[in-house]
């Protein structure tokens, strides 16, 4: 039987809103797709685009970046700075072939457990449709080939 593709999603979430929102989803026993690996950072302002690339390098098929709604930032303006950065980085990623079906952004507050479930389900489904991001992993083939074979990346 062929194994069904389960996408690996890396989600960078801020400590104060989205992480707490995801926690609420859990304590409320809301059912959600289990594909995301959450990485908690103090604030979306801390999220350097190099994190996103690092996630893809490490085998992520999709990345989600999520934080507090504008105006809700624990540090007042972290998410405003982040938003401006994302506007730029998103276009750069798109221009180089990491399109918006792999790179997602959202605002999820501490009270929005339900929204978190919707976001994570939506992202997972989009990335599942898109398939594994082997094209990205293959870029390292001149050095990683033996390991890629071992891990079953299609070459």
């Amino acid at each position: 039987m062929e194994e069904k593709f389960e996408p690996k999603i890396v989600a960078f979430v801020c400590n104060w809103c989205t992480y707490t929102g995801a926690d609420l989803a859990g304590t409320s026993r809301l059912k959600q797709q289990p594909n995301a690996r959450l990485i908690r950072v103090p604030c979306t302002g801390r999220i350097d685009p190099v994190f996103i690339l690092k996630a893809f390098e490490s085998g992520a098929d999709g990345v989600l970046v999520s934080g507090c709604h504008p105006g809700d930032c624990h540090y007042n303006a972290g998410n405003f700075h982040a938003r401006r950065r994302w506007i730029m980085f998103r276009e750069l990623a798109e221009f180089t072939g990491i399109d918006s079906s792999r790179l997602h952004f959202s605002w999820v507050s501490a009270s929005e457990g339900k929204k978190w479930v919707d976001v994570i389900d939506g992202v997972t489904e989009t990335v599942r449709q898109k398939g594994p991001f082997d094209q990205y992993r293959k870029m390292a083939r001149n050095i990683e080939l033996p390991i890629m074979e071992e891990e079953g990346v299609e070459i």
């Binding site: 390098e57 490490s58 085998g59 390292a140 050095i143 990683e144 390991i147 890629m148 071992e150 891990e151 990346v153």
Partner: peptide, 11 residues
């Protein structure tokens, strides 16, 4: 350096 998802490489 990191290599693949759970290995390392000396390069």
């Amino acid at each position: 350096e990191q290599c693949g998802t759970c290995a390392g490489v000396r390069a």
